[in-house]
Design a protein around this nucleic acid. Structure first.
Length: 726
DNA sequence: CCGATAGAGTTTTTT
DNA sequence: ACTCTATCGG
């Protein structure tokens, strides 16, 4: 205990419930925590780390704590620091990707990369896939870069390299993917670059190929703790397996009901089979929820009970029943947005802070209408996700310049900046130079530095390259002196003429871009100020691994808008889930691909984010791709027992049977699909509007009625209080 | 080589 | 509806 005199171990355990305490004080060996939503899993993780350190069982630098997002890592680090103080600094508390990158910065030379390898984000990677497709003469219309990239990523997540993938191709498509994969791989390697998936794949390679490396890390990390284990993919699973030493001190925390990243290769069986893999594992279930009212939890339990093959859990709370769940049907997405805005105004008038309110939607595209409405209502908000700062063209350009200074072999970066700003280097000339570099087996940077040697290059192009490379040479020399990153960046923007070109545009868009670049310089300045020993390489790695979800600010009086996926791990007193319509949520593409259960888990995640009030809204009609569509109310709304809600339509139509609340898995609501019982010209009586005539019948069970005194109105035929009178 | 125009594909979710 | 891409004329 002398190692940690300042930690009061008894106090660490105070306020923990029995299962939490059992998890925190587990002696050693494999440990599985099935942590329901809001059951205090971060508390268990942080307290366990503190307990391990505080009781002298482990040194801080022997801890490896893994999360999925930087935000979660930062939060965990902060909370551990509150418990054990400065010692936290010696711990590895970071994301899978950051940990792998850190490992590879040391070990990559063993695999033929330099330590300065570049990390490609998805867009960079997509561009390289596209280039590979073009080079192979494949028709990019028949096989889109996106589809092929997804296949390749999938393969990498399963630790299949191009050869392994090639061995098991079945279709022509897969054969094509195999070809692209092979070329893409060799291109990446040639450019000294790794994509996100490579970070894991290559780390696994190093650990598998070099026993002494593996030995070093398994000895170093005596305790490994993993958050959100249900979202790990096979590569991550294997990586953990390789790092787990003989003591087998692997603790995983997760909730199979919240597994929502299957589309990205996450393999839910990792958590479901943990006990089989480690038969002596201690399993602890955390079922007491400290976040939400019983009404919200009952709703979540009811919805998720429609999924099969789960670890059984039942959330409960002693916080009381609370308000019913607010369910609202609106005419269209605009009415839905107005309802949300009005309701927010009301809630804020009653004294809530805007920061307590979040709106969740299935797809990013849904935020636009909402944003318009909130702006008009003068309600301040922040959007998480969507177009990200680091994906903006000007930011990517600036980053590409910096990347190129460090890694002159990076063709993607080179082609990105060669003619940006315009300097007379067109696609043709650029292709000649990269092609020449390719055939000669030299870095593009060198080929471009000697443009006279490149065959077929016109005099104008030679001049343009000479000038461009002159600037780049000066900048490289400057970079090698190791200036502050912010200064280097400013020089780059000035010397390359990038800023000048934007200023010359004199448009609002250009002004916005200049501001974004200024912000990037600020980011760099902050990095220079806070990093222990700032280097350009480390800065680039940091921003390559950053995600927009990490930029969320708390408590600034802003309403938070985000996708349901981004909402994982967060909580808000008041939550709106909008767009609860079949086809939107559950998403039509997920339905096609049999992903209904994952969609339902997404609903579960959304519902359980709410502490006090939950709204579920849906629109009778909305614009998708510019076309009007009609989606029936989401089955997830119907899976919430009616008596937990304030659903009005039930009361308006006495005698109408409550909607079924349980479906067979993947089944379609028979009633909803049944043909509408109305035909054109029928006379119909509406409880509120009186007699009307059917003037149209639309897909999704919609009837359009004309009323003499109320004009034309649309109804969901089997929900509206309608009666045929003719 | 560049800019304008037309056409197509896009939108599921992201470290 | 919007953005990216291919094509054409300058």
């Amino acid at each position: 205990m002398s190692a940690a005199p300042s930690i009061d171990v008894e106090r660490l355990l105070e306020g923990l419930n029995p299962p939490q305490r059992e998890a925190v004080t587990h002696e050693g060996g494999p440990l599985l925590i099935l942590a329901g939503a809001g059951s205090g899993k971060t508390r268990v993780l942080t307290h366990r780390i503190a307990w391990l350190v505080g009781t002298g069982r482990v040194q801080p630098n022997e801890i490896l704590a893994i999360t999925f997002t930087n935000k979660a890592a930062a939060e965990m680090r902060e909370r551990v620091e509150l418990l054990v103080g400065r010692r936290t600094r010696a711990m590895w508390v970071m994301t899978f990707h950051a940990a792998c990158a850190r490992m590879l910065r040391v070990e990559a030379p063993r695999l033929g990369y330099t330590r300065q390898f570049t990390i490609y984000d998805q867009a960079d990677s997509r561009r390289l896939v596209k280039r590979s497709i073009d080079e192979l003469g494949i028709d990019p219309k028949r096989f889109t870069p996106a589809a092929i990239q997804h296949q390749i990523s999938d393969a990498k997540n399963k630790l299949r390299d191009a050869d392994a993938y090639g061995q098991m191709v079945g279709s022509f498509f897969e054969q094509t993917v195999a070809d692209v994969y092979r070329l893409y791989e060799s291109e990446l390697h040639r450019m000294n670059a790794m994509d996100f998936d490579d970070l894991l794949f290559r780390s696994v390679n190093v650990l598998e190929l070099f026993p002494e490396v593996r030995e070093r890390y398994t000895t170093a990390f005596r305790h490994i703790l993993v958050d959100e284990y249900q979202d790990t993919n096979h590569a991550q699973y294997r990586w953990l397996q390789l790092l787990t030493g003989e003591e087998r001190n692997l603790m995983v925390v997760g909730d199979d009901s919240q597994a929502i990243f299957g589309f990205r290769g996450a393999d839910i069986t990792n958590i479901l089979d943990f006990e089989e893999e480690f038969p002596d594992a201690l399993t602890v279930k955390l079922e007491q929820n400290y976040r939400s009212t019983q009404t919200i939890l009952s709703a979540a339990n009811a919805v998720i009970s429609n999924n099969r093959g789960r670890k059984n859990k039942n959330l409960w709370t002693d916080l009381g029943q609370g308000d019913p769940i607010h369910v609202r049907e609106l005419d269209d997405e605009h009415a839905e947005a107005r309802f949300v805005a009005r309701e927010i105004e009301r809630i804020v008038d009653e004294g809530a802070s805007r920061a307590e309110i979040a709106v969740f939607y299935r797809t990013n595209a849904q935020s636009r209408v909402l944003e318009d409405t909130l702006v008009r209502a003068n309600l301040a908000y922040q959007v998480i996700g969507g177009t990200k700062f680091y994906e903006r063209a000007e930011v990517k350009d600036a980053v590409a310049y910096l990347t190129l200074l460090l890694n002159p072999q990076d063709v993607v970066a080179f082609t990105r900046v060669a003619n940006s700003p315009r300097r007379g280097i067109g696609a043709t000339s650029l292709g000649r130079v990269t092609g020449f570099a390719n055939t000669m087996g030299i870095p593009v940077f060198d080929a471009a530095a000697d443009p006279e040697e490149v065959p077929g290059l016109g005099a104008a192009a030679v001049k343009a390259f000479t000038r461009f490379m002159g600037t780049m040479r000066v900048l490289r020399e400057r970079a090698e002196t190791g200036p502050p990153v912010a200064e280097l960046l400013e020089e780059v923007l000035r010397e390359t003429g990038y800023l000048e070109a934007l200023e010359a545009e004199r448009t609002i868009e250009a002004q916005g871009r200049i501001e974004n670049l200024a912000e990037l310089v600020e980011v760099a300045r902050e990095y220079d100020g806070t990093a222990e020993s700032p280097t350009l390489g480390e800065f680039l790695q940091q921003i390559a691994l950053i995600a927009d979800a990490d930029t969320r600010v708390d408590d600034e009086g802003l309403i938070t808008l985000m996708t349901l996926h981004n909402a994982k791990g967060l909580e808000f007193p008041i939550v709106f889930m909008i767009g609860c319509e079949e086809g939107v949520f559950p998403h039509s593409r997920a339905l096609d691909e049999g992903g209904l259960e994952e969609e339902r888990r997404l609903a579960y995640v959304g519902i359980t984010r709410a502490e006090r009030d939950l709204y579920m809204t849906y629109a009778r009609t909305r614009n998708v791709f510019g076309a009007r569509t009609y989606g029936a109310r989401s089955r997830f709304v119907d899976e919430v027992p009616v008596d937990l809600t304030d659903r009005e339509e039930q009361r308006l139509a006495p005698g109408m049977r409550p909607r079924a609340t349980v479906w067979d898995d993947g089944d379609i609501d028979a009633a909803r699909m049944s043909p509408v019982a109305y035909s054109l010209g029928d006379d119909v009586k509406h409880a509120a509007f009186g007699i009307g005539k059917v003037i149209a019948v639309e897909p999704g069970g919609i009837v359009v009625l004309h009323f003499r005194d109320h004009g034309d109105r649309k109804f969901v035929a089997d929900l509206a209080p309608l009666e045929r009178v003719s």
